[in-house]
Amino acid sequence: MGEKSQQSAVSSQQSNVGAYGNTPDKKPKATRDEYGDTLLELGKKRQDIVVLDADLSCSTKTNKFATAFPERFFNMGIAEQDMIGTAAGLSLTGKVPFASTFAVFETGRAWDQIRLTVCYSNTNVKLVATHGGITVGEDGASHQALEDVALMRALPNMTVIVPADAAETASVINTIADYKGPVYVRLGRAKVPYIMPDDYKFRIGKAFVFHIGRDVNIVASGIMVAIAKKAAEMLSKDGLDTGVINMSTIKPLDGEALLKVAKSSKLIVTAEEHSVIGGLGGAVCEFLSENHPVPVKRVGIHDSFGCSGNPDELIKFHGLTAEDIVKTVKNAINHS
């Protein structure tokens, strides 16, 4: 394996992929691609599933559902606010609407609509957004949602989920179709390796603990779980027993799992492809400072916008590589 592929966190089309996967036989797959496939299967099984999109169905992959079930698919055009309201209305007649577009537009453009007609009205609307984070790539900052988790997490009644790989995405989508209430799911554009165990099944509000570290524990979400696992390997080689937790449900946060790892180590590091303000890092700090204060370092986007570039370059540029996590851990330990 070449130098480049070992550092590759997510794949752009040009680079080698799957460097951090635990199942090398399975080719990396974008979580949005899995969403499209799972949604299609759900549509076959359940008549009450309806899907809305705002002119991005080819990118969010809801086009698969649209082709199979045109009468249950509503393209709303480039009108996210109307899409959310319409989804709320559909849910109020007993349908289970999945409303999709890019994370920036879903959460930012239609925030007040989500607040009033989804959360305050507590309607059974599933907001599944793709193109979360900087790995959107070349489209640049206008299309890279780095605040979406914070925006959704602040809303009462909302559940917020960021799956780590395609298998977890399938499990998440099937789970939320059966759950009653507002849900936000953040998916990505780029292909990501399979990292969750084959027998893993997602449960809302339950983190997956790969290993509990005695020295450090990294709490990660989305594509950063794979990167955190790589960082943990590197740190363990340097004699630091490092745990990794996939905190795929960011709200409600799995406080029990968090307490367990916080009590076992002196340092917690969070890792997210999102602003460190208000996202996973913020949620972990809020919980631990009230329940079990321990030092926390946050790896993520530090109060800035993204930029154009390919996903691998952007991961490096914004300090989200395994090496960056290692550096953060070592600095924290050296200064304690």
Binding site: Q81, D82, G85, G89, K95, D112, L116, T117
Partner: peptide, 27 residues
């Protein structure tokens, strides 16, 4: 009360959604 309102401009979208849902059910 069918849906919460108060932030203006949102009711017609919800009404559309309900109308579409009822139509799907032949209601």
């Amino acid at each position: 009360v069918e849906v919460s309102t108060g932030s203006l401009g949102q009711g017609l979208s919800v009404a559309n959604g309900m109308a579409l849902g009822l139509r799907l059910d032949n209601n």
